[in-house]
């Protein structure tokens, strides 16, 4: 294991932020800490980096107990949401910072920095100042700077949070490819479930300072441990006291085993998919079907149809709901 977090508790004043958090991060993996804002994910990342000290619990990095180690001695690379670029230094000097601190020979620094700038596609920006870069470029510079010291783990705190949607998407794909190239154990924080599912190979869902579930993206999506995780990871609708994904609902004209009657209240076309709003036993629900299905059934408001969860669909029974 690259990182082992055990029973970590942390409070700010009287507010508990992390509650008995234990997480393992496998070497070479790309792990997402996913959860709503205020869920404690950034604090957990900062605890791993040594920027915060846990009240209780331990953090081991590459088998070494790092709980009491200062950030300088942990050999982790940290990338901040707002880049934390050294504004008074050129891109080159920013990336070279960690190597210069370590007093590496000048030609080695030059070679390594240029290598990294090439990796993040900034080789032509070496002599610019951070203020002359776009947000996406600054974040790539920050990444190169963190990678320069060859950290054992790379930690990214909402790395794309401050960027606009288009750049975000590009950087996501790019981060995934970069990780496949560099293979450094990486943990990133995000509140965007799509980002976590698309980029990570392990997802840790955190809410209210506690770990709700750990698993592969398809695992947490398909087999959510509880209603919270199911709701957080994707769209849900409620049918017969169970939570179901809307794309797991089958609509047919005739009754089938396990199906029930529903009234169509509205049909909304969203390009390729169609959102069918239903009334089931007086409760609102909705199903996501393809355009083909909607046309074949000629769905229109007022129609009485039969619905059931697709055989094999995962659903969660809500207790006390």
């Amino acid at each position: 294991m690259a990182i082992e977090v055990r029973d970590v508790n942390k409070s700010f004043g009287t507010t508990p932020v992390l509650r008995d958090v234990s997480v393992d991060v496998a070497s070479g993996s790309l792990t997402a800490l996913l959860g709503p804002s205020g869920g404690g994910k950034s604090t957990l990342l900062r605890v791993i980096a040594g920027l915060e000290h846990p009240d209780t619990g331990t953090v081991r990095i590459s088998g070494v107990d790092a709980t009491r180690l200062s950030p300088q001695r942990r050999n982790v690379g940290f990338v901040f949401q707002h880049y934390a670029a050294f504004k008074h230094m050129t891109v080159f000097r920013n990336v070279a910072f960690g190597l210069e601190i370590r007093k590496r020979p000048k030609d080695e620094i030059r070679r390594r920095v240029m290598e990294l700038l090439e990796l993040v596609h900034l080789e032509r920006m070496a002599d610019r100042y951070p203020s002359q870069l776009s947000g996406g470029q600054r974040q790539r510079m920050a990444l190169a700077r963190a990678l320069a010291v060859e950290p054992e783990v790379l930690l990214l705190d909402e790395p794309f949070g401050a960027l606009d949607a288009q750049v975000r998407k590009e950087l996501r794909t790019w981060l995934r490819r970069l990780h496949d190239e560099v293979h450094v154990t990486t943990v990133f924080v995000t509140h965007d479930q799509e980002e976590a599912i698309e980029v990570a190979d392990t997802v840790v869902v955190l809410a209210d300072g506690a770990v709700e579930q750990v698993g592969s993206p398809s695992d947490v999506y398909d087999n959510p441990a509880n209603p919270f995780v199911m709701r957080f990871l994707g769209p849900v609708t409620e049918i017969g006291g169970s939570l179901v994904r809307p794309h797991d609902i089958e609509i047919s004209a005739e009754a089938r085993p396990g199906s029930g009657a529903a009234t169509v209240t509205r049909v909304v076309r969203l390009g390729f998919e169609v959102r069918v709003e239903l009334l089931v036993d007086g409760r609102e629900a909705w199903a996501q079907v393809t355009r083909g299905t909607a046309e074949r059934l000629a769905l229109a408001p007022g129609d009485i149809v039969n619905i059931r969860p697709t055989p094999g669909a995962r659903s969660l029974t809500l207790t006390g709901a």
Binding site: L51, P71, Q72, F80, A84, F86, K87, H88, F97, I101
Partner: peptide
């Protein structure tokens, strides 16, 4: 954050002050 980044890259408190905090 800038000072935290500096610490994370291995700079001790004095070096961070000299190279990051003071210039800023």
């Amino acid at each position: 954050n800038m000072e935290e980044a500096s610490a994370d890259l291995g700079a001790d408190t004095f070096t961070t002050f000299r190279l990051v905090t003071f210039p800023m």
